[in-house]
Structures are given as structure tokens and as C-alpha cells.
């Protein structure tokens, strides 16, 4: 089996007793678009900073292309492009001058790489404008241009759509998909926006309060989204009791959206309906439904771990 592009094992970062990241394991293989999902403050950026050698882990290891990240291992970073948290640029320099500076930093001889990166990100016409005059969306794109300039095999983008309007978000998403398809770059995208990750990722890692709750392929995750029977009844409490006591259904929940949800394998909608009607409950709706990824994420985060 091919060597993982990125392998993180037991990664921890503690600050004066506070666990910012606690035993995170991750693996990215060639060609993955990895969605690193978590709420604000979940530990995504700290984890990414440890991956890139900006923060020293309290314990655990990070391996990029099989090489440990740490002191004296900076050469491997030549294979990685990143935009971490905010794409900062030298405001006194133009877009192309900022890229030229990065080209020298990464010891790239080929000046055409700048032109290619600017064309890829749609910034060629703005190449001679100062970076300080760029909008946030343009800065994000310039950040990506800088990150791909040296032809990395792994691209790490930390919240690349932060602060962007819907059009900007879509542009960045299409750009990431384009990079993955045309340049065959393995990509890690962190985000707190689930729909964004859902549309992009082939693999997902969900982090919450520094703990990796789940890591799986997007396909497997979608399969895990549980089916349930949604009921709208005139007496929630009595219906819940009846379904539990008479049919032995354990997982019955009243949700804020006004639906009674019955999660159970081998649900019998007809039987439920008959029971409730027989007991004088008015059933106005009874439908088979499936959790969205968002529902799954919320359940996972609230439960603090993966459920079947």
C-alpha cells in the first residue's frame, strides 16, 4: 500500500492543563480531499499548525510523506502548500511581487510558475495591484496561488472560505475541486461549515473540543446517516411512552422542529400508526426520513462520540 501523504498519531497540545488537542489521529492518502470539520475553537487550526511545524506538540507525531515534522525536517515542507487561518501578504508589494518573494523562499527557479498560479486562480489581471488593495476573496485566492506556486503534492487550506460571500465561497470551492482534479493534489480543507465540506470532501474528520470524534470516507459517513420515522402527533409525551412501552422502541425523541423521531432498526410504521390511533392519538403525518449530514454532525458533537 502506498505511503500516506499525511499521518498524524496521538497528537496532543496542552496549555497549562487545558487540552487544546487531545490524541488526534488522522491519515490522508494520495488523492484525498480531506474535510477537517469542527466548530470554531474545536482545535482544527492548532492541529494544522502542529502539522506544519508552527506549534510544537505536547506529544504525538506528524509525518508528512513518511518524514517526521520537527526540527531539521523542513525540506519536506517543500512538498506542502498551505494557507493557515488568514492569507497574510506584504502590503507594500503587488500580487506578483508577493508571489515572486514566495518563489524565492521556496527556492523555485521557474518564473513561469507565478504566471501559471495567477492564471489558475483568476488573478492574472490583478497581478500588478498591491496586495493591500485586494478584497478578502481575492486575498484568499492569492493565498491559494501562493500555496500552489511551488507545485505541492499536499495542499492545506485552513478555513479558506472564512468571511466570504456565497459567490466567493462557490469560487473557492470550484477552485479547490479544479486543483484536485487537474493537478492531482491531495487536499486538506478545514471548515466549520458542514455544507462546504459535504460538497468537497472525499474523506472527513470531525473534531470537537480537541478530540477527533470520527474519521471516515464521505461515502461511509453518508451511509451512516440514520433513517428514522418522523411522526407529527397531537400528544408527544403519550406517543413517546406508548412506542417505548408497547413496541419496545428505545430511541424515540421529540425534536425542536415539531417531529417525533423514531430511530430503530426494523421500524414498523404501520404498527406504530395502528397503536397510536387505537390509543386515541391523532397522527397527522408519518413519513420515512433520513438524517442530513448536519443532523449527524450535531448528534455526534452533542453525544461526544460516534454512534451507530
Amino acid at each position: 500500500m502506498a505511503q500516506p501523504v499525511l499521518q498524524v498519531q496521538g497528537l496532543c497540545k496542552h496549555y497549562k492543563g487545558v487540552k487544546a488537542v487531545d490524541g488526534v489521529d488522522m491519515q490522508l492518502n494520495q488523492g484525498d480531499i480531506y474535510g477537517f470539520l469542527g466548530q470554531n475553537g474545536a482545535g482544527k487550526t492548532t492541529t494544522i499548525r502542529m502539522m506544519m511545524g508552527l506549534i510544537r506538540p505536547s506529544s504525538g507525531t506528524v509525518k508528512l510523506f513518511g518524514e517526521s515534522v520537527g526540527e531539521g525536517s523542513n525540506a519536506v515542507l517543500r512538498k506542502v502548500g498551505s494557507v493557515i487561518e488568514y492569507p497574510g501578504f506584504y502590503p507594500n508589494l503587488t500580487a506578483i511581487e508577493n508571489l515572486n518573494l514566495h518563489r524565492r523562499l521556496m527556492c523555485i527557479q521557474d518564473k513561469n510558475a507565478m504566471e501559471e498560479a495567477l492564471h489558475t486562480t483568476g488573478l492574472w489581471d490583478a497581478r500588478n495591484r498591491k496586495a493591500s488593495n485586494f478584497s478578502l476573496g481575492m486575498k484568499q485566492r492569492l493565498g491559494i496561488a501562493r500555496a500552489i506556486l511551488h507545485g505541492p503534492e499536499l495542499l492545506i487550506l485552513d478555513e479558506p472560505t472564512n468571511g466570504l460571500d456565497p459567490m466567493g465561497i462557490k469560487e473557492i470551492r470550484l477552485l479547490i475541486q479544479d486543483l484536485a482534479q487537474k493537478r492531482k493534489i491531495t487536499i486538506l480543507v478545514s471548515s466549520h461549515i458542514l455544507s462546504e465540506v459535504e460538497q468537497l470532501a472525499t474523506k472527513v474528520g470531525i473534531i470537537h473540543r480537541g478530540v477527533m470524534l470520527e474519521e471516515s470516507t464521505m461515502t461511509a459517513l453518508k451511509h451512516k446517516n440514520r433513517q428514522y420515522i418522523g411522526l407529527q402527533v397531537d400528544d408527544f409525551s403519550k406517543s413517546q411512552d406508548l412506542l417505548r412501552d408497547e413496541l419496545g422502541i428505545r430511541d424515540v425523541r421529540m425534536e425542536d422542529d415539531g417531529w417525533l423521531r423514531v430511530y430503530d432498526d426494523g421500524q414498523q410504521p404501520g404498527e406504530m400508526n395502528r397503536l397510536l390511533v387505537r390509543e386515541g392519538i391523532e397522527v397527522s403525518s408519518l413519513v420515512a426520513m433520513k438524517d442530513s449530514l448536519e443532523d449527524y454532525f450535531v448528534r455526534l458533537v452533542e453525544g461526544g462520540g460516534a454512534r451507530g
Partner: peptide, 14 residues
């Protein structure tokens, strides 16, 4: 201050 430190320190230089 210009938030370029990430870029500077994630290059192939110590």
C-alpha cells in the same frame, strides 16, 4: 503584524 509569519516559517528553511 502583516500575518506573513506562517508563510515564512513553513518554507524549507529552519
Amino acid at each position: 503584524q502583516e500575518r506573513t509569519v506562517n508563510n515564512m516559517l513553513t518554507g524549507p528553511h529552519s
